[in-house]
Simulated assay, not measured.
Amino acid sequence: MLDNLLKRRSQYALGESLPIPKKETDRLIREAIRQAPSSFNSQSSRAVILFGKESRKFWHLVEEALRIIVPKTDFPKTQKRIGGFAAGAGTVLFFEDQSVIGELQEKFPLYAENFPIWSEHSTGMAQLAVWTTLADVGIGASLQHYNPLVDDKVAATWDLPASWKLRAQLPFGSNEAQLAEKTFIDDSHRFLTFG
């Protein structure tokens, strides 16, 4: 697993070509989410997997939402960035099902305040599982967060359940540029070991 994590990097230069068939990519995304752990085995993570035209539709929604709030002088830079995400083969939209969290809060009131926090842990693990799985087969990706800016439009466009809360977006595709080396802060600022 550590070898797979070492392959995972943010890739902003995405292309439409995939090294494996679309059906296999879809299967890997689903299986990675299925295998990601969740508190109380809640399985609260949900995903919408968009390919091609549907993925570009999502990034158009993001661009239009940003056009309203980004100053005109800065918008070309923003538009270029969004266009880079749209240039990929697809996008995974990650959600957490709030109805599952509510049910757990009712069933286990002692832990009620923790279930929303644990749900965020679950989605983070699902995101990492998918990103790492894609990286392992040579698919580039980067994790983005344009929620809640586009939440309502996404829900309406794909007719999603009201209980699904958008948490992150993962545009993916072929690696069209060399992946950057990752830098790390000094371990002494990050880790303590005892015993």
Rank of each mutant, 00 (worst) to 15 (best):
M1A: 14
L6A: 10
K7R: 14
R8N: 11
R8L: 10
S10H: 10
Q11E: 11
Y12S: 12
A13G: 06
L14W: 07
G15T: 08
S17D: 08
S17A: 15
P21I: 08
P21M: 05
K22N: 06
K22P: 01
K22D: 04
K22C: 03
E24N: 13
R27I: 02
R27L: 13
I33Y: 07
R34Y: 08
R34V: 00
S38A: 13
S39N: 06
F40I: 03
F40R: 14
S42R: 04
Q43Y: 00
Q43P: 00
S45V: 15
S45Y: 05
R46D: 07
V48W: 04
L50E: 02
L50Y: 02
L50S: 07
F51I: 03
G52M: 05
K53T: 12
E54C: 00
R56Y: 00
R56N: 03
F58S: 02
F58R: 05
H60I: 06
H60W: 01
H60Y: 08
E63H: 01
E63S: 15
E64H: 09
R67E: 12
I68T: 15
I69P: 01
V70I: 13
P71C: 02
T73E: 12
D74L: 13
F75M: 07
F75E: 02
P76Y: 01
K80W: 05
K80M: 02
I82F: 02
I82Y: 02
G83Q: 06
G84T: 04
G84L: 09
G88F: 06
A89N: 07
G90S: 00
T91E: 13
F95N: 13
E96I: 10
E96H: 08
S99H: 07
G102N: 11
E103M: 04
E103R: 10
L104P: 13
K107M: 12
F108E: 13
P109S: 02
Y111V: 01
A112N: 01
E113L: 09
N114H: 14
F115L: 11
I117V: 15
I117E: 14
S119R: 08
E120A: 14
H121N: 12
S122G: 09
T123C: 13
G124E: 06
Q127D: 15
Q127K: 07
A129Q: 06
V130T: 11
D136G: 05
V137C: 06
V137S: 09
V137G: 12
G138L: 11
G140H: 11
A141M: 11
L143Y: 11
H145R: 10
H145L: 11
H145T: 14
Y146M: 11
P148I: 12
P148T: 12
L149S: 07
D152T: 11
K153R: 14
A155R: 15
A156N: 10
T157N: 04
T157W: 03
D159A: 14
D159E: 14
L160H: 13
A162V: 01
S163K: 03
W164E: 08
K165E: 12
K165G: 03
P171M: 05
G173H: 05
N175V: 10
N175F: 04
N175W: 03
A177F: 01
Q178H: 13
L179H: 10
L179F: 03
E181C: 02
T183I: 10
T183S: 09
D186H: 03
D186N: 06
D187S: 09
S188I: 09
S188K: 13
H189E: 06
R190P: 00
L192T: 04
T193G: 02
F194C: 00
F194A: 03
